[in-house]
Nucleic acid binder design. Structure first.
Lengths: 174, 174
DNA sequence: CATAAATCGAGACATTGTGTCTTGTAAAGT
DNA sequence: ACTTTACAAGACACAATGTCTCGATTTATG
């Protein structure tokens, strides 16, 4: 009761092609057909292992992009996080968040991804803020500001945002 | 050099049908074909005046939903805003934000909509916060937290959020 | 009143992406 | 050998988008 094993080469080729096409054409213009073609694989091979483009991208992110380590310093943590989000990866995660709005099954996985990042920030903030500050709300406001800017594009997500957020939070404990 | 004037009845029927279908089926499941059909109008009549579903919805919001007035009290302002965003309107604006990620022309209009709300909050915050607090960042963090919760759905946008944000901001000026 | 201009509702049409299905081949265990 | 599963390639039905055509309607102009 066993057949041909899953091709690890095809899997990596698909995940790699997904990210590459994303960077070249933008998340919204990437199609599953395009991913399969760029990866030199059949379309069914993609559909067999992932239900949607978003799921492919999410796995590609976790495989090829390492998340910022849990730095102890808030400013450093935010610098790493915002540097990553402001670049090509930012375009992907924004597309994923947009797709999550029309795909509840994927939204669940997206929340898992988001939650891991929330935990990392929470671990930093718990050492930075006073004990009587609402930690969950602080996480919402920091990452909220980041996502808000990523999606609405009224201001960049960059080093200066990390500085400003850091000084803003410092005021809470004075 | 004048022809038949635009039918105001059709315009209102389309905007009304757009919101009604949104509430019944959810933003993502609404199609332009469905809107035209529900409004009892031809499809071309919709396309003649709006390029996309998102533009129809945005106009429908501004016509049928009145924005919270610029209350002087921060907590009251947030209560009104969050009560609106937490209901059926929240589902629409989230859908619009998602669509804006794949339609740059609409994203420009969306930023205009967002910016009017930012100005309203800014007007309240400038009377609430100390003069040396970064006002733009404060707006980003407050509305950011709201949008973050609306899109990721890890926590509700309700009265308690308004309370928590109000007390959090009060700490900045102590 | 006659004509030009622009709208109206209705629906055909091509295009594109999704997701399923089929075909013939390849690689594993039994 | 035989079964099972994956593979690449591509046909297929389906749904939504956006353009186009059609005949009819409603306005301003001469």
């Amino acid at each position: 009761m066993a057949g041909r094993p899953r091709s690890e080469a095809s899997r990596r080729a698909i995940l790699r092609a997904a990210l590459d096409l994303c960077e070249r054409d933008g998340y919204q213009n990437v199609t599953l057909k395009g991913i399969a073609q760029a990866a030199g694989t059949g379309r069914q091979t993609v559909y067999r292992w992932w239900p949607t483009k978003a799921e492919v991208m999410l796995e590609a992110l976790t495989v090829f992009v390492e998340a910022p380590t849990g730095s102890e310093d808030l400013r450093t943590f935010l610098l790493e996080t915002f540097r990553l989000s402001g670049g090509a990866v930012g375009g992907v995660v924004v597309g994923l968040m947009a797709d999550a709005q029309s795909d509840e099954a994927f939204a669940v996985h997206m929340r898992g991804f988001i939650d891991s990042r929330r935990q990392a920030l929470r671990a930093v903030l718990v050492r930075t803020l006073s004990a009587d500050v609402d930690l969950e709300l602080a996480v919402d406001m920091v990452f909220g500001a980041m996502w808000y800017r990523l999606m609405n594009r009224h201001a960049p997500v960059d080093e200066s945002l990390a500085d400003e957020v850091t000084t803003m939070l410092a005021r809470l404990s004075s």
